[in-house]
Design a protein around this nucleic acid. Sequence first.
DNA 1: TCCTGTATGATTTTT
DNA 2: TCATACAGGA
Length: 761
Amino acid sequence: MSDLLANLNPEQLAAVTLPAENALILAGAGSGKTRVLTTRIAWLIGTGQASPAGILAVTFTNKAAKEMLTRLSAMLPMPVRGMWVGTFHGLCNRFLRAHWKVAALPQTFQILDTQDQLSAVKRLLKGLNVDEQRAPPKQVQWFINGCKEQGLRAKDCEVRDAQSRLMAEIYAAYEAQCQREGVADFAELLLRTYEVLRDHAEIRQHYRARFRHILIDEFQDTNRLQYQWLKLLAGPNEAQPSAVLAVGDDDQSIYAFRGANVGNMDDYQREFHVHHLIKLEHNYRSHANILQTANALIAHNARRLGKNLRTEAGAGEPVRVIEQPTDQQEALWLVEEIRLLLRDGYARDQIALLYRSNAQSRVIEGALFNAAIPYRVYGGMRFFERAEIKHALAYLRLLDNPHDDTAFLRVVNFPPRGIGARTLEQLQDAARLRQVPLADAISALGGRGAASLQAFVDMLGRARVECAAMSLPDLVRHALDVSGLLEHYRAERDGQDRVENLEELINAATAFVTQEGFGLDAEALREQALSEQALQNLQAVDPATGETLSPLTAFLTHAALEAGDNQAQAGQDAVQMMTVHAAKGLEFDVVFITGLEEGLFPHENAMNEADGVEEERRLMYVAITRARKRLYLSHAQSRILHGQTRYNLRSRFFDELPEDTLKWLSPKAGAGGFGGAYRPTLRAAWNAAPAAPAVPFTPAVQASAPPHGLRVGQSVFHTKFGEGVILTLEGQGTDARAQVRFHRHGPKWLALNIAKLTPVN
DNA sequence: TCCTGTATGATTTTT
DNA sequence: TCATACAGGA
């Protein structure tokens, strides 16, 4: 036990050994948060204060959950596999598989991922005869998920006008459709679990009595529903509440756009009567200059819980800042700088190129490619999201559940078997009329179409029988054969990759069976299932009957819940490229933050949102704190975006950084963000200044001047709108436009060949 | 059924 | 600019 606690700093030690009461740990970037979380669990178990079964630990990503389990298994003498450590969705899935009856779901319910959900919505809208103009599918999906994340069912939706009434009606129809088909989307997993806990006191009591300790990671990212769920489970106002340990960092809250509610941290402190607030401010990652830069930036945010990172590492190198004329030249400069770093002995995978939006990666990729520097871009297609894999999974889903209409429609004519759109429309009409699954509506149809459809369903039926006794990998292979999928891709000219991916799917099935312990014989499974222990060991065992989930259902669940790696090229020794969001939680020796321009970072869309700029600033804070030894910040005067050249002002964030930690590799230009007044003299001075060759590769600092003689940041006068400041200039010749923020009328776009703008001094 | 042209829209993303 | 989605013709 003393081993466990050795090498913890005083704050970490305090957090680990807190009494069994609600606590909030404000864990700064690089402060050893995961270590605290896992050590706390090990300490609770090691001191006999809790049993492994009595602990619930929740994370957001599978990666974090796995990491926690790995560390725990190194710390604890007992197996950790069965512990309730997982993602919100994973744990809710486990819960629903065990309580499927009260949850009113089939035990083999399938999980719809985002794509599946969208196609389900599209199908629904067609069926309801709702014009896609009036209710764009994406918007409907967004609305439904938004409601669910607030804990709202269709009947709870506020109806204000025709549009909101329509949305609520669609939502209601969607609920019915999912229920009929036996499928649940991601948000449904949480909402359904929440409702079961809310409406069934005996179940709630059971889990409350069981989970005396609840630990939550990344608390700042929780949404309303997740918070409500926690409240039900922990019962802060009950006689014997569970002890909750929430770990989070309000400064790293960057997911408000998908429903995360930082306010949960305040609510939590109040509603859970939190006495213990511990700040982990000791950073073990970055040099002092980098931390100071981060601290200074984030200090510009209001309404923080308050926290300042410190380190015992030395000041280290200054933060390097550079301005380049164009995005192209920014990329070339990156390449040169990376060459030098590599020559100095930095490992390729210790160099990260961060950007605000994915579109920015193209130029950089091009430059790296030309320079023959290996790179890896994060955030592409994930394994289980590939079209061929989704097709294969659809066949597997139909074997498991013939009523899964989403899967049915996906593959009924893929590979092509002569079932046209016309036939499918008739089938859907017939099914809708009778309120039955598509497969059951075929008999109502006549003609050639019906025969082809029947052949398809018969094929599935035969396969279902043949597969009954097969092992999971055999079953997958068999499905790929009978469906004709494999053959189809083999015949295709460019199908080689897809064939390989399908082979990989069989491998994944093999690995799944081995890892998950589904290879155990049925009798052993059944015996285990009867004990409470089994409920933990197997993801899905009915506690009443001991009935276990089939390996196929478990595999499909696994595929939906863990979509696999989203790293395109798995080449290890490569420069790492990713969005700032994707970089959260990672760290690198060298970090480049690129494209630091007004409109890009902070992003223009964020400026119109409430607290948008603050979230952008937190994003920048996250980016800065990824760096261990060396940090570069770069921006370009002009950039091609959506095919048009835009002249962007340097990001306002530069003006919020301390001068003494920065080193300008190019002469610092005057004028900063929009907050302060524009200072034309400084800018003029910079334009005249000679380029200082701070690094071997320094392109000329002169941007190609926009032809109309106007500059971003310039004050102008318009006869109708009065005075304003130019925010953006783009386009050329007659297409040239300017975005101007007028003092009295706000920002407006103006065509420069029409609008008369007079420079003001 | 497949192919080709055009329209459209383009932060950030995990489950 | 550029990718993707969908409509319409062969």
